[in-house]
């Protein structure tokens, strides 16, 4: 789509929604990757703590995933699907 075709405010907001969820997903992806890396390294070093570490891993993954979901809420707001 050429740049001059985007005219109205709601079209700009749709574009902003895409950009918001895109950048938000980058951060959350990096965060979950780092969490998985740390989990695997610690389990490879000490296999007996796997049961204990998996809880913290899931907690940390959920916390970093939440950052993408904040972006998702903003994207919903921008695209007008939510109130």
């Amino acid at each position: 789509m050429a740049a001059e075709e985007i005219k109205t405010l709601s079209e700009m907001a749709q574009l902003g929604a895409g950009i918001a969820i895109g950048f938000g997903a980058v951060g959350a992806g990096l965060g979950i990757g780092v969490a998985t890396k740390g989990f695997l390294e610690s389990v490879a070093r000490q296999p007996e703590i796997a049961g204990k570490a998996v809880g913290f891993f899931l907690l940390g993954a959920a916390l970093s995933e939440a950052c993408a979901l904040y972006a998702f809420v903003i994207a919903l707001k921008l695209s007008g699907m939510m109130g």
Binding site: A62, L63, E65, A66, L69, Y70, F72, V73, L76
Partner: peptide, 12 residues
Amino acid sequence: TLALRLFANILA
């Protein structure tokens, strides 16, 4: 953040 995290996860 507490409210948004739960809400956004389920809604997403």
